[in-house]
């Protein structure tokens, strides 16, 4: 698997798009920090970017890579290599290079700015960890979509739809159900609904740092326990891991049964 990973990774870090992605984050980091000169504001803006853009780019990148490397995959399938290794290797190659672009692209300006001396270091690390998780999750979701759809256009459409759903539509439905059922106790429901969407989950994780004062304003006991203690952090991270592992498992499972 590590050989496949190595070659996918090699292939990707030489591709133009990885650099575009990397440079985008580099530029964003520099603009936010050096033109604005305000770490707190930079972190809030970055959060919005990470929550929305990272899933979008990971999805598109993942699906494009999968379709474009069809030949590579077929070449590998005839080699004495395990199927799961081929797909896991490719997946980790894509997700790894995307994560690297993200972490380096944002990390470099922040380090240059002197982040290690500021107390925003924890917020920032949390942001990067969340970004990394979102990359892992949305890339593997994209791989799953691609694996189940031979038709590129269809697969691409589903992938963008997935992003749109997770990033916007889900929250809209969520809010509507909160408003419709507001006479019922909803705190467990709303926490549950948060957990079932990795974007919301990541957002919550960041909210725990940035907006804890507002979150603690709500009366519900379940909320209080979730946001007021370390429980929220642990549950969120656990669920993010779950969101990563489950689609990977499906990827391996489906790829084993698939004909090429």
């Amino acid at each position: 698997m590590f050989k496949i990973l190595k070659y996918s990774f090699y292939d990707l870090i030489r591709s133009r798009w990885s650099y575009v992605y990397f440079l985008f984050y580099l530029l964003l980091g520099f603009v936010l920090l050096f033109l604005n000169n305000d770490v707190s504001k930079a972190i809030i803006t970055l959060m919005n970017v990470i929550i929305i853009l990272v899933p979008l780019i990971s999805t598109i990148f993942g699906i494009m890579y999968f379709y474009n490397s069809k030949e590579f995959t077929e070449l590998l399938l005839a080699q004495p290599v395990k199927r799961s290794s081929i797909f896991l290797g490719q997946y980790l190659g894509v997700a790894g290079s995307l994560t690297l672009s993200l972490v380096l692209g944002l990390g470099i300006p922040f380090v240059l700015y002197g982040l290690f001396k500021s107390d925003a270091i924890f917020d920032f690390s949390l942001l990067l960890v969340t970004g990394a998780f979102l990359t892992l999750i949305f890339t593997v979701l994209a791989f799953n979509i691609a694996l189940s759809n031979e038709n590129k256009i269809k697969g691409f459409g589903y992938a963008v739809l997935l992003w749109l759903f997770m990033a916007v539509i889900y929250d809209g439905l969520f809010l509507m159900s909160l408003i419709i059922f507001k006479q019922y106790p909803l705190d467990s429901f709303s926490l549950g609904a948060t957990i079932f969407n990795p974007i919301d989950l990541s957002r919550t994780l960041i909210l725990l740092k940035l907006d804890i004062s507002a979150l603690l304003g709500y009366t519900g006991a379940v909320f209080k326990k979730f946001f007021g203690t370390d429980q929220g952090l642990f549950v969120s991270i656990f669920m993010l891991i779950f969101w990563t592992v489950l689609p990977i498992w499906r990827l391996v499972f489906v790829s084993r049964k698939k004909d090429f």
């Binding site: 916007v168 929250d171 926490l191 709500y218």
Partner: peptide, 13 residues
């Protein structure tokens, strides 16, 4: 109006 919706803070929607 709906206090639980606080969990949607900072969402794109």
């Amino acid at each position: 109006k709906t206090p639980e919706s606080i969990v949607l803070l900072r969402s794109l929607f």
